[in-house]
Design a protein around this nucleic acid. Structure first.
Length: 274
DNA sequence: ACGAGCGCCTGTCGGC
DNA sequence: TGCCGACAGGCGCTCG
């Protein structure tokens, strides 16, 4: 579920607080508890539980789909993958069935990492680049320009959809926002990256950024039971709309499988490559 | 350098 | 009602 806009929302809420939920910045960790061992990617559980206590949360950022918690000494990185969720608890409630890892703070506050499918991962590292180095550029950064995207696209010969999903190409796009951006840019998901002209690159660049910025404005997209509080599902142009009319031209939205991922597009607005 | 296929996991939904 | 397969926001691995 969580792609760039949803992770950005988690980061903002933990950094600044939301509603009656306080910021966790400045709070000191008293314990880290791992309930599902595979959730912890690095380091070993014993070292994790030894190194965490005493460290304060200094800052919270996002890089791609990773949450980056800067601590006094180390960095705590969290990737929610398909079904991860973060809950800040102020009471003494028991961890629920899907709680995989819990961080406790000095004032009784606890941060619970819930993850039904157990795909999510947590790292405690001294240098975040050991985990993040492989990521491509941030699509919303100023340094990410249409000229840069053109060069990137032409350095590969790959289908657009799997290429945009590749986190070492661009960081943060997932299945929803890739389909949405391709539709907005009028580009078929199977078009070859090498065949994208300058004008099409400009459209794709604008579309990626617009889709992400508009989703961040409404706290991301809520689908099924996994992520709540977002509003972008009301703006879906093609994602999860197979058989329904394209909002631009009325043609039925199609669903195909590309790289083992469900892929939604308008066959009229996004003409197939030769 | 690609794409395809699979593994990791649990929950939900539609069809029969 | 119950069972069974398809499918789900991600990503790392192997194999041609």
């Amino acid at each position: 579920m969580p792609e760039l806009p949803e992770v950005e929302t988690f980061a903002a809420n933990l950094r600044s607080g939301v509603g009656d939920q306080p910021s966790i910045c400045g709070h000191t960790i008293t314990a880290g508890e791992v309930l599902w061992p595979r959730t912890l990617a690095l380091p070993e559980i014993t070292e994790f539980e030894r190194r965490l206590p005493g460290q304060a949360i200094v800052d919270i950022r996002r890089r791609g789909k990773y949450l980056v918690l800067q601590l006094s000494q180390d960095y705590l990185l969290i990737h929610l993958r398909m079904s991860g969720d973060l809950l800040l608890k102020q009471d003494e409630s028991e961890p629920d069935l899907h709680t995989r890892l819990v961080i406790s703070f000095e004032d009784g506050l606890r941060l619970a990492f819930n993850d039904p499918r157990k795909f999510g991962r947590v790292w405690l590292v001294s240098d975040p680049e050991t985990v993040l180095a492989k990521l491509g550029p941030e699509p919303l950064d100023e340094e990410f320009t249409p000229q840069m995207l053109y060069g990137m696209l032409h350095r590969h010969r790959r289908q657009l959809k799997p290429l945009l999903l590749d986190q070492s190409f661009i960081a943060g796009l997932g299945n929803i926002y890739t389909d949405e951006a391709l539709h907005m840019a009028c580009l078929h998901p199977l078009v070859n990256s090498n065949d994208i002209a300058h004008g099409q690159t400009e459209r794709l660049w604008v579309s990626i950024r617009r889709v992400l910025q508009e989703a961040i404005q409404v706290n991301g997209a809520s689908i099924d039971w996994v992520y709540r509080g977002g509003g972008y599902q009301n703006n879906f142009r093609v994602y999860d709309r197979a058989g329904e009319p394209c909002l631009v031209c009325g043609t039925a939205v199609e669903r195909i499988v590309v790289g083992q991922r469900g892929t939604h597009f308008c066959p009229n607005c996004q003409p197939a490559p030769d």
